[in-house]
Computed example of a mutant assay.
Amino acid sequence: MVSTVSEPNNPFLPGDVIVNILKRLPVKSLMRFQCVCKDWKNLIKSSSFIQDHLHHSSHQNPSLFLRWHNSIRMQFGLLDGDCDKEVLEVENAPLTNLFFARIVGSSNGLLCVEASENDTYPFPLLLWNPVIREVRKVRRRTIIDFELDDLLGFGFSQVDNDYKIVRIKVPEYQFVANPMEVYSLNSGSWKVIEFDNLEGVAIRSHRNVTVNGVMFWIGGKQGLDDDYSLILSFDLSKEVWTVIPMPDLNYYDKIRLIEYENRLVVLAGFFGEEKSYLIHLWVVEEDRCSSGERWIWTKIFTSSPFPPKLDPVTIWRNEIVFCPFYQSDYGVSTPILYTLNLITNEFKRFPIRSSQNDRINMKIFSYVESLVSFDNINIEDVAS
């Protein structure tokens, strides 16, 4: 609770009202407001307020994080809820002249980024809060040698109150090999995880998503290159694997695993009648019913027809977001963002505006602004 003082003829605001107002403000404003008084500074830096602000931002003001090339280097930007506004370019990126940058994952305002200013491998791993401009390097002195094709994932385990990076060795043919490694931000170290229940299982995509402390990959049976019948899940707290069957997705393509309303959702494209293209959303629940089935899939959405060239990447504010398309006018290439509303089934398109005209290979990720700081985490700061 923030203490308040009432003076004659001066307005009075109770502490809980101040908290309720401040938690609705953007992080950039809150960083400035720490200078108002000592009480406000202590409040904004407190763990309880950081969690309240994060909860509000996650539900009321999610953002999109963008990564793109220009003619000189890679850059980053944020797109908030007002699609008419231009991209807010991120200042003070962790490396100034990036040769390579790949966003491994996003959780609670923290990004895990594989980034480098040269072509020397292994590329450094960074944990970065772009809004409050904090960054930490992750030690890569691990037991297992890093390889270029290793799978990486990043997520938060609420049970452990810990952010974790998962690294999986993927030999030829994309089957999952033993062992794997998990990095804990709390301990600042890697540890090897042994498992024996994924024999004959292959991972089909480097894309993954973390939902409620569980990391998910699209998988299939080893040796069947066109088999996408499985989902591989790794519980970040229990550190165990589970194999989940996919819904019946015969004749589907562009299969994606996405978080929606705090649940795992399978998004799958489908060619319908008269060359129309549809998207279906499936949600899974674990329930052993009388038939013996453990995993129950339910289709929760079917889109109206849309152009098959669009590639869905995430869900943002009840809208499916597609990878930007580029429109050229008078020699200037402008990214066009397409969205599909899950409630109204309405398509929208708008240009992504920024001060940069030469934006190439733009990638989009779900993101939420937060005050989460490495000072608020029990972390051992280690150099690469």
Rank of each mutant, 00 (worst) to 15 (best):
P26F: 06
S6D: 10
F76E: 04
I231C: 07
N108I: 01
G153E: 00
Q75W: 01
S184C: 00
E261N: 15
S355Y: 01
S107E: 05
Y330S: 11
S333A: 07
E7D: 06
F76K: 00
L127P: 09
S58Q: 13
L249A: 01
L66A: 08
E194A: 07
I21L: 05
L257C: 03
S355T: 02
F374N: 08
A101G: 15
N197Y: 07
P94K: 14
L125H: 10
L30Y: 06
I168V: 15
I315D: 08
L267Y: 08
M1V: 07
D52P: 00
K254F: 04
P122F: 12
N92P: 12
W297Q: 09
S63A: 06
E7L: 13
N129F: 09
S187E: 08
N212Y: 02
I377L: 10
S370C: 04
F123A: 12
F195Q: 09
C112W: 07
E91Y: 11
K45C: 12
E7K: 11
E89Y: 04
S71R: 08
Y260M: 05
T142D: 00
S157R: 01
E261A: 10
V90Y: 11
E346L: 08
P308Q: 10
A202M: 13
N161L: 02
I379M: 11
T339A: 04
I18D: 00
S116M: 11
H53L: 01
E273C: 01
F270L: 07
Y251L: 09
V266T: 05
P124C: 09
L185M: 03
N341W: 13
A93L: 14
L267Q: 06
V159I: 03
V138E: 10
E89G: 07
E259T: 02
I44S: 08
I320H: 09
F374G: 06
S187F: 02
E199A: 15
W295L: 14
V382G: 12
L281R: 09
G15T: 02
F99W: 14
D145T: 03
R102W: 13
F175M: 15
V19D: 00
N357Y: 06
I320Y: 06
S58R: 10
T339D: 11
R359L: 13
D196M: 09
Y228R: 13
R141W: 07
N361P: 07
S47E: 09
D358A: 02
P62V: 01
L111I: 06
D39A: 12
W316I: 01
V182K: 04
R294Q: 10
Q34M: 14
R167M: 03
M1E: 05
Q51V: 00
L64I: 07
V113T: 05
D39Q: 13
S373L: 08
S116Q: 07
E274H: 02
K191G: 02
K28W: 04
G220S: 11
I315E: 13
T210I: 08
F99P: 03
F154H: 00
V382C: 14
L64E: 02
R139G: 12
V170M: 15
I336K: 03
D311M: 08
V166G: 10
D287W: 04
V266R: 11
N118H: 11
F195P: 12
R139V: 05
G109N: 03
D227E: 15
K41N: 15
P26V: 07
W297K: 11
L110T: 01
F49Q: 02
Q60D: 13
I336M: 13
